[in-house]
Write a protein that binds this DNA or RNA. Sequence first.
DNA 1: CTGAAAGCGCTAACAA
DNA 2: TTGTTAGCGCTTTCAG
Lengths: 334, 334
Amino acid sequence: MRAGERRPTLADVAAEAGVSVALVSIVMRGAPGAGATTRQQVLEVARRLGYQPDSRARLLRSGESRLLGVVFAVRHPFHDDVLTGLYDAADRAGYELTLSAVTPRRDERTAFAGLLQDRCAALILLGPLAPTADLAALAERLPVVVMFRAVRHRAVDVVRTDDARGLHLAVDHLVALGHRRIAHVDGARWVAAGERRRGYQDAMRRHGLEDLIRVIPGGSGEEDGARAARLLLDDPPTAVTTFNDLSATGLLDGLRRGGLDVPGDISVVGYDDSSFSRLAHIDLTTVAQDIDAMSTLAVTRAIERIAGTPVAHRETVIPPHLVVRGTTGPPPMR
Amino acid sequence: MRAGERRPTLADVAAEAGVSVALVSIVMRGAPGAGATTRQQVLEVARRLGYQPDSRARLLRSGESRLLGVVFAVRHPFHDDVLTGLYDAADRAGYELTLSAVTPRRDERTAFAGLLQDRCAALILLGPLAPTADLAALAERLPVVVMFRAVRHRAVDVVRTDDARGLHLAVDHLVALGHRRIAHVDGARWVAAGERRRGYQDAMRRHGLEDLIRVIPGGSGEEDGARAARLLLDDPPTAVTTFNDLSATGLLDGLRRGGLDVPGDISVVGYDDSSFSRLAHIDLTTVAQDIDAMSTLAVTRAIERIAGTPVAHRETVIPPHLVVRGTTGPPPMR
DNA sequence: CTGAAAGCGCTAACAA
DNA sequence: TTGTTAGCGCTTTCAG
């Protein structure tokens, strides 16, 4: 960029084209009310001058922001896929996305504040950890759609997966293969951990296996899975469901180091269908959430709220599906 | 959000506090020129009304944007770490970041355009794939800092890793362990692949191993690594360097399936220190880039350009370092 | 179909 | 220390 050069404004284009600014505005927005010839000319001048409309001024004047703020967390491979879906959905709806990341050194509060100042019309939060009260306070100011987490508050919209059903699918799959001694590695206090644990317990009961229910303390990291493996090695079940894929990979490694073959001796099911779960040497059977559907739903819901459309349900729960890969198979013969 | 409720403006706060808008503006910015008592009062009213300054109006008026646009790609675990570093650096410098993602269905052009409309003061691009001419055209409009890629154009600033040196480190490490037959799995046409390949070749020559230079066609994905493994199994070397971690994991899997022990029979070195390379069961020796230093440098450079500070070098090249983990060891005895 | 004028929420002169 | 005033670049009436 050469110094001293000002970016061209509407007025510059208007002057150069010999028309009024209002007309240029009409042309740039593609709004009706300009002759085809004039339109061509203006467009040509704008291109030549390298004119870029200033979205700040535009939004400021028009009052409407058509801007959706998204808060996501880095190092969640899962969120990357969601962003992809959200961009698609926003694009289809004629909205822009503005992103604010949560990083190890940038908390949710900061991420929220940034978006608030940008005058987003609504916020979409991916698996926020903030207490419900904070989310409710936010929702006081603008429509808030929370994804991948249940929030029991009437001001907050929720689009999440039926996590209990996810574990039903996992257990059903294992039982169909012939497993009975199925353990679950828990997700501790993480978002959705409780529902997944209860899903596991329900499913076991439904199959008449309540006496074999076994919940192992865990967490969201690989090391949590590895720790769980150590706890299981003394008396290994024939199959394990887990809170998430990362924990499952740690578990896999721990079990193999302990001399067990997967899936020969023991089957493992993850949760999330993370990108690394697809890697050939991990090849994890896992529960996948329908990210595209959920993204579309979240954007639609946000826009409905912005428009003030009455919405019947605050919470939308999407069924997950099972992706069967190489870490599950029949139990070993006795 | 209850419908019909307008967000409070400066004027609302001023009216409520019984002072002028200018004074409120001064207080909200923390600028000098307001009495302590008034300041307290105004702040209190603002808090009570839930006033949030409108950064768009603020920026529009002040002319300065203090906004850095960042283009990153989704599904690059590496970029997550860079974002973390960039937020830190921007925060220290008193700048805001606005993110625009490249996704499988949202190309770089679109990502650039979005930021341009937001009137960023400068752009930071993480490993852009766009041709140099496009980047130069962008740099015509505002300062552009490219990271993780060499761009030979006087209008574009570059902060990148000395990738050749990265492969020198890898080869030196392997040679020190006693390896001589070291192959390199190439990154095809990807950003930086050429320099890494040349780094490998140089290092081999420096160690008098030019006759043992062996470049295997590859790519950036796991499947490329797996394919390379098949090519190597006929006549395996004792060590392999790779274009990146993902390719290395595919290679690892392919080699192990082919009956080789890593690192007993063959050592493998990745590149990037991706988060998954740290997973205990992958535990990949890899070349790490100094992300924090590079992030700080990129932000600093962008701000220098915005301010019009004369900058001596357009290109800053940072040395990488080797992270030794479990996939490298001495070559097998003969 | 086109132009003139007002004002979005804010900051920065300047005046009081 | 405080208030008044004039815009930033744009959209949006409302006249012509």
